[in-house]
């Protein structure tokens, strides 16, 4: 059913006069990039403004444990156990910060060390770890039509949720004290955003890879910061740069026969360096 839904997309893209457009997996990967890159670019603005880069890195690394739990539970696909575990981890980090009185980087470091080792211990039993290394670098070209449908649903949900927490998080990033004095539950918005971020990062992991997902979250927003002088410009540039890096990286990786996720990250890094020139010039 999803395939028939995607038929017009395939028909439209295959008209393009490029070699890559002739392949079904590339057309699907393009659609996935068009969905996932603005999603990561948009969330990245909040991650950068609110200094959550270490948190999103930790969520990516925790995927090992999510996969391991899926294996232990005998699940056919580890996705649900990965999402469940990422959410659990988000709550655990929030709990350690509040109850343990730990600073946020210490709380995250603590929880990440535990989860990564737990995941590797479980997955390496019987010397089987090599089977899971494809999660490290991801595989953009293995995207299925069902994946794309889930991603579209997630993108709609993220867009709607921005109406709930974007302004509160923005105010919190500027002055936690003013944010608290204006809204009683600014902490709730932070936790809700962290949970949403954990879900998006985990869903995008199998394509982009555990080692690279955070770069795609942070680089476009970091580049946008060098160009923007207000919030809507920041957001717009971040989404646009993410789009550009995603599409360019996908096409380059096709012709160069390289891993797509890593190629996208290199393009994003190149764009970041260009924006740095403009920043030092101004």
């Amino acid at each position: 059913m999803i395939e028939s839904f995607l038929a017009p997309w395939h028909a439209a893209v295959s008209v393009l006069p490029f070699e890559w457009a002739r392949f079904g997996f590339m057309r699907l990967a393009l659609l996935a990039v068009l969905l996932v890159s603005p999603l990561l670019g948009a969330l990245g603005t909040v991650v950068v403004a609110n200094r959550m880069a270490f948190f999103s890195e930790a969520i990516g690394h925790a995927a090992f444990t999510g996969i391991a739990l899926g294996v232990l539970l005998g699940l056919a696909s580890p996705m649900w156990s990965m999402i469940g575990f990422a959410l659990l981890l988000t709550l655990a980090i929030a709990w350690f910060r509040r109850r343990g009185g730990l600073s946020s980087d210490t709380a995250i470091g603590l929880v990440m060390a535990f989860t990564v080792s737990l995941g590797i211990v479980i997955l390496s039993r019987g010397g089987d770890f090599a089977r899971y290394t494809n999660f490290l670098i991801g595989d953009m070209l293995a995207v299925t039509a069902a994946d794309v449908a889930w991603l579209a649903l997630l993108a709609v949900f993220v867009a709607a949720s921005f109406f709930f927490f974007f302004n509160r998080l923005l105010l919190g990033s500027l002055s936690p004290a003013i944010a608290r004095s204006r809204a009683k539950n600014s902490g709730a918005a932070e936790l809700a955003f962290a949970c949403l971020l954990a879900v998006v990062v985990t869903c995008a992991l199998p394509w982009i890879g555990i080692l690279l997902i955070n770069a795609l979250l942070i680089l476009p927003a970091a580049a946008a910061r060098n160009l923007a002088s207000n919030t809507s410009q920041f957001f717009g540039w971040s989404v646009a740069i993410s789009f550009l890096a995603g599409i360019a990286g996908l096409v380059v990786s096709f012709y160069a026969s390289t891993a797509t996720g890593a190629t996208i990250v290199l393009v994003a890094m190149a764009i970041y360096l260009l924006t740095l020139l403009r920043r030092t010039a101004s």
């Binding site: 403004a49 910061r225 923007a228 207000n230 920041f234």
Partner: peptide, 8 residues
């Protein structure tokens, strides 16, 4: 910070 007074 790419934030204007109006954004605040």
């Amino acid at each position: 910070a790419p934030v204007s007074v109006l954004d605040l």
